[in-house]
């Protein structure tokens, strides 16, 4: 068959045919990497300008350059490192403990009826408690030293890990499990080759949450009872009105958060390539 003839087109023009208006505008986000950088530069510049011309009182909010100076001094003197090291040890041990326990409990709840029926009500009860509220109790039980801080962090990390691991295991596609069963694949192999990989996306996004929970709790715990650690450092700086040092500490904490976030993103790229 031939395509449309010129006659048909002429006829349409004579009949006064109108253009179909384009209605598909909007609801599309375009990427612009420059905008983000520009926004940060503008905020920093405005802040610097405000302190230089004196609108902002430097006692309460030092200029970005002063904060940067403080950060450089603290880094060079090794003081920041000393505090950072103390915090990192607590974060890492607490996080490791909480994550390991959380994965075991979360997987059990996902796989076994008994564990689920027992675990669900318990998790629902304890999850909403702000874990930092339990620190005084932990101090009574475990003393003011490292154990009570690590325990609080572990507990704070434990619950989100249980929930993400459980959710991931529970959401593992039934059809894939049935398939594995139809080939007589043994139980443990199904857990490691089917359930674990399908729950990995959920576990990794849980990791993001548990990292930030650990960071939050370490700072809070160090503010309550520690002479070393980033939280203690920030609190002391505040008490002495050293706002430039205080903000340097805050920046260190956010860099730590950024680093863990980047780590999880890298893990996701590495482990979830198949998606």
């Amino acid at each position: 068959m031939r395509s449309e003839t010129p006659h048909a087109r002429q006829a349409a023009d004579q009949a006064g045919a109108n253009l179909v208006p384009f209605r598909g505008r909007g609801f599309e986000i375009r990427r612009n990497a420059f905008a983000g950088v520009a926004a940060i530069v503008v905020v920093l510049a405005a802040w610097q300008l405000g302190t230089t011309i004196g609108i902002i009182n430097q006692t309460f909010l030092p200029s970005p350059l002063n904060v940067f100076d403080a950060l450089a001094d603290l880094t060079l003197s090794g003081e920041l490192l000393r505090h950072l090291q103390a915090s990192l040890v607590r974060i890492f041990s607490g996080w490791l403990l909480g994550t390991m326990a959380g994965l075991v409990v979360g997987f059990s709840m996902g796989l076994f009826s008994l564990a689920r029926n027992v675990g669900m009500p318990l998790v629902s009860c304890f999850y909403p408690i702000p874990k930092i509220a339990l620190l005084p109790l932990f101090i009574l039980w475990l003393g003011i030293g490292e154990t009570s801080k690590i325990g609080t962090i572990a507990l704070g990390v434990f619950f989100p890990t249980v929930i993400s691991a459980f959710g991931g295991v529970d959401g593992a596609p039934r059809n894939l499990i049935k398939m594995a069963q139809s080939f007589n694949v043994p139980f443990l192999s199904i857990v490691f080759k089917v359930v674990l990989p399908s729950s990995l996306p959920s576990i990794l996004s849980g990791l993001r949450i548990s990292f930030s929970t650990a960071l939050l709790l370490v700072v809070a715990a160090e503010m309550i009872g520690a002479d070393r650690g980033i939280g203690a450092f920030v609190l002391t700086a505040g008490n002495l009105m050293q706002t430039d040092q205080l903000l340097a500490g805050v920046i260190t904490i956010s860099l730590l958060g950024l680093a863990t976030g980047t780590l999880v993103s890298a893990l996701e790229r590495l482990l979830l390539r198949w998606r």
């Binding site: 059809n175 894939l176 990989p197 198949w274 998606r275």
Partner: peptide
């Protein structure tokens, strides 16, 4: 639904 493991 084929039941293939998407990560393999």
């Amino acid at each position: 639904d084929f039941a293939l493991l998407p990560w393999r």
